[in-house]
């Protein structure tokens, strides 16, 4: 076991920051936040190298969001080559179990030990190269995947930090509190909390409806003494963009340009600023 652990450590030696995106509840927007975070970090400097790892093994969404769900992973002598969402520029590397499935409708029915093995391989066998940021998108809950991640990443614990995503409803907030308890139990520094889906602007009359109520996130952050990074309203443009599937023109990487036009991009810019400040401090 110990030499496998060091394989992970060796591989991730060249990664500067590892950011885990967590949430107790499913469907609050972890994957869309991870995607946005990766895109924002990517454009933060012209040379920033970003990796995104999807450890949601039974429900991978990252390939679809980056519009690369028709791509596959290649094997090289130095490990698996991740899928580069920005084509030949090769500054945005994605890895997900979705790339390994023959048919995207196939279910991955795995119990814990197998998931654990896959995560270890993702961390030790993928040729990430030099990365400024590695964003890890997790499945909901606090179970096998999360424990495995923490276990395998022990060697690089000083690079780890987490972002917690929630929506304003009571049910999601309760799960977010559990998630905060988890980060304390495993001694994982939390960069801050993001409230997603807070409010929806009616396209016909401009009225803001609180589809899932509002304000719960900042309240939770205050109580738990976490930094509140910001709230993101429901943005149908973003939903369509990330749901759109392959753009067909991988080479010129239109996703970023189209993303910059959405209203979320502006809001997320500030959130990214907060996250980067937090990273500098650690």
């Amino acid at each position: 076991m110990s030499n496998q652990e060091s394989a992970v450590t060796r591989r991730l030696q060249s990664v500067k920051h590892i950011i885990l995106v967590l949430s107790g509840k499913g469907g609050v927007g972890k994957s869309s936040v991870s995607t946005q975070l990766a895109l924002n970090l990517y454009k933060s400097t012209p040379t920033a190298k970003v990796g995104i790892l999807d450890v949601d093994l039974t429900g991978p969404s990252i390939p679809r969001m980056f519009g690369v769900d028709d791509k596959g992973v290649h094997q090289s002598t130095n490990g698996w080559v991740p899928v580069y969402a920005d084509g030949p520029t090769a500054r945005l590397a994605c890895m997900s179990v979705g790339f390994l499935l023959k048919n995207k409708g196939d279910s991955v029915v795995w119990r814990g030990p197998k998931k654990n093995g896959m995560i270890r391989q993702f961390l030790s066998d993928v040729r990430w190269g030099e990365l400024d940021y590695l964003v890890i998108d997790t499945p909901p809950g606090t179970s096998d995947e999360h424990l495995s991640l923490m276990e395998h990443l022990t060697g690089v614990h000083s690079k780890l930090s987490a972002v917690i995503v929630t929506t304003p409803q009571a049910v999601a907030l309760m799960d977010a509190i559990k998630c905060v308890s988890f980060t304390r139990a495993v001694n994982l520094p939390v960069l801050g909390l993001i409230e997603n889906m807070s409010g929806y602007v009616c396209p016909c009359c401009g009225e803001i409806s609180n589809v899932f109520s509002t304000g719960g996130g900042s309240e939770l952050a205050r109580k738990e003494e976490l930094r509140f990074l910001g709230s993101l309203p429901v943005d149908t443009e973003l939903v369509s963009l990330l749901d759109g599937g392959p753009s067909g023109q991988g080479a010129d990487f239109t996703l970023l340009a189209r993303y910059e036009k959405t209203s979320s991009a502006t809001l997320f810019g500030e959130i990214t600023g907060g996250i980067m400040q937090g990273l500098d401090r650690t």
Binding site: H74, F99, L100, G112
Partner: peptide, 25 residues
Amino acid sequence: MIATQMAVPAPDPKSIPANAPEHCP
């Protein structure tokens, strides 16, 4: 493309102990 680990063909719901190896039958 490589097929590293495919999903189990017919899930045979089995009890796998916590400390089992990855390919525990």
